[in-house]
Amino acid sequence: MRRGPWLWAAALAVYAFLYLPLAIVVVYSFNDSRLNAEWVGFTLHWYDVLIHDEEMLLAAGNSLFIAFVSAFVATLLGTMAGMAIHRYDLKLLNFMALTPVAMPEILLGVSLLLFFIQVLNLTLGMLSIVLAHITFSIGFVAVIVRARLAGMDDSLFEAARDLGASPWETFRYVTFPLILPAVIAGGLMAFTLSIDDFVITFFTAGVGVQTLPLRIYSMIKIAVTPEVNAVSTLLMLLTLSMIVLASRFAPDVLKGKT
């Protein structure tokens, strides 16, 4: 196939553009200097600072808790939505699940802020963050589950019914085992999205609760310190392992085909 040297050069330059900034963050997390400007020497000092930073640890705990709860509920609701959209061709539900993700994030953030305070009279905190995260995760889970169902033969389910299985038995012994990889991949996706979310959390967190991204944001707004590099490096490792896990369950998710 036609892959000239110019095409190679341009593509490699773009790969470099994608990776160099992240490499710099990782490298400077081991740098024995307060400034992220030049290499002084190797140290684990910033990781030591990090594990003794109680506010950061608290924020990390909050992030994990929020991610677990919201991913669990979003997987449940998203799987139901994906199955319903596939079976009954529900355009309205499809629209409702996908629009929150298709619009600029800030819109969901501020409308939920208004809704929580004005209508529900809810004090912003863990609950409001979890509800917000479920809202934007449902669409992702639904898309993944639906894609899996679309790739399967519907006669499998009809056969189960013909052989006398009740709707529940059909689901329990045929549909569910078949879509399980997509459900797990969707759940991992929801977990990653929740851990990573900054914009919507920023509007729905209020003053009491910090998450990891909120903590990173307030740190980089004040000063650039290599502790941020250290936490960034660890976060990269975490999300990386989630992606690897998700790709084992649903390889297509990573190929931009869903």
Partner: peptide, 14 residues
């Protein structure tokens, strides 16, 4: 795989 803020932060350094 890296957090959105981390990717922005990288450019603060550069």
């Amino acid at each position: 795989a890296s957090n959105f803020l981390v990717r922005v932060y990288a450019w603060m350094i550069i």
